[in-house]
Simulated assay, not measured.
Amino acid sequence: MGASGSSPASSVSASVDAAAPDTPAVSAEKPKCKACCACPETKRVRDACIVENGEENCTKLIEDHKACMRKMGFNI
């Protein structure tokens, strides 16, 4: 019984440890504005590229905008 009791605890610990690095970052930095208003400079360039060239041709600008949103505290 002791061995089977420690296995689930180990599984829970492992899953908690895996989730732990993400959780503090999200709760430590709460967004200071709404998502629609965050990162207007990267959003504008990204949107223009998508309209003119299609989403598949703008992956760098999309990733830049996502990085900016993460810095602003959004979980994207």
Rank of each mutant, 00 (worst) to 15 (best):
F74N: 02
M69R: 00
V26R: 12
A9V: 14
C58H: 02
A35C: 12
V45R: 01
A3F: 08
R70Y: 10
S27L: 12
T42D: 13
A3I: 09
C33M: 15
T59F: 04
C36W: 05
S15C: 10
K43H: 06
C68G: 03
E29Q: 15
M69E: 04
C68W: 02
P21H: 09
N53E: 11
F74L: 07
N57E: 11
E41R: 08
D64A: 12
A3R: 12
P40E: 07
C37E: 15
C49R: 01
V12R: 02
C58R: 03
A25S: 09
S10R: 13
D22Y: 14
P21A: 10
C68L: 02
P24T: 05
A25V: 07
K43F: 07
A19P: 00
N75S: 12
V12E: 00
A25Y: 05
S4C: 12
P8H: 10
E52V: 00
I62W: 01
R70P: 01
A48H: 06
K43Q: 08
R46W: 07
P8E: 09
P24A: 08
M69Y: 01
K71D: 10
I76H: 00
E52L: 00
K66Y: 05
A9E: 08
V16Q: 11
S13V: 14
E63Y: 04
S11G: 11
C33T: 15
T23M: 13
R44P: 01
P40S: 03
K32C: 12
D47C: 03
K30W: 13
A19K: 00
R70E: 14
T23I: 14
G73V: 03
E29F: 15
C39Q: 01
R70W: 05
E56R: 09
R46T: 09
C68I: 02
M69N: 01
A67H: 04
A25H: 05
K32H: 14
R46P: 01
A19L: 10
R70Q: 09
A48E: 11
K66F: 07
P40A: 05
D17G: 00
K71H: 11
A19T: 01
S6Q: 11
S10C: 08
V51A: 09
C68N: 01
C33S: 15
C33A: 15
R44M: 14
A20D: 00
I62K: 04
G5K: 00
M1Y: 14
S13Y: 13
R44D: 13
P21S: 11
K34V: 06
R46V: 02
D22I: 12
T59L: 07
V16P: 04
V16E: 14
E41Y: 11
C37M: 10
N57V: 01
S6Y: 07
K71M: 11
S13A: 15
C37S: 12
E52G: 03
A25C: 03
S10V: 10
T23H: 13
I76Q: 00
K32N: 14
A28Y: 14
A19H: 03
K30S: 13
I76V: 13
C49N: 05
M72H: 06
M72A: 10
C33L: 15
K43M: 06
